[in-house]
């Protein structure tokens, strides 16, 4: 079933087309929600809320862009709205220095690499993680993130910098990436100053 047919069906509130749309995009969108959420249950709740919005607002979709991009924007905004309702998140997003994260070997799950990376992202404190998700993965600018999260643009930048270095440390420890401070030379490895 083509995307056009699915879209046309969804516009007429056709259940089969809606199910087809859900089947096509829900796995990836649940992955998006999972990166923002505290656990799988919360991610599923976010996904459910997102798709209800998608089906009720599908007539607003203009064929100017990609359907997946439009869906993804709704999902991300829904996730942010859900997080913003949580007081813990509101408090944590403005904290300049978040507490450190446990990076013991056993705390990092090891399944497949994509999942591993996502799980490593989820180890970050929620404020850092949200900014990192929005900036590095969803492609929003710091100004947009500031507007979305009701924080200063500079706060978003600093949160992202810290989030990134924390994540690097975790990924290096997990050996998913090489340590950027160690430079490979002809005679072996040498540590470079940052």
């Amino acid at each position: 079933m083509t995307e056009e047919l699915i879209l046309a069906g969804c516009l007429t509130n056709n259940a089969a087309a809606q199910e087809a749309l859900y089947a096509r995009f829900s796995p990836r969108m649940l992955g998006v929600c999972y990166r923002f959420a505290k656990n799988r249950e919360d991610a599923e709740d976010m996904l459910q809320e997102s798709f209800i919005k998608i089906f009720s607002q599908i007539h607003q979709f203009r064929n100017e862009g990609v359907l997946e991009g439009w869906i993804r924007r709704i999902v991300v905004h829904t996730c942010i709205n859900v997080l913003k309702k949580n007081k813990k998140f509101s408090d944590s997003i403005d904290i300049t220095f978040a507490s450190g994260i446990g990076t013991k070997e056993e705390t990092i799950p090891s399944i497949i690499q994509a999942k591993e990376v996502v799980e490593c992202i989820r180890l970050l404190p929620i404020g850092y993680r949200t900014v990192l998700n929005l900036y590095a993965i969803e492609g929003y600018s710091h100004r947009e993130i500031g507007d979305m999260l009701d924080i200063e643009e500079s706060t978003s930048r600093s949160q992202y910098t810290r989030a990134k270095s924390m994540l690097e440390a975790v990924l290096v420890k997990k050996k998913i990436i090489n340590d950027p401070s160690v430079k490979k030379t002809f005679f072996g490895t040498s540590r470079v100053a940052k």
Partner: peptide
């Protein structure tokens, strides 16, 4: 990060 995250799916 983006590639890995985009590859990630959950059912």
């Amino acid at each position: 990060l983006k590639e890995m995250s985009d590859e990630f799916k959950m059912y």
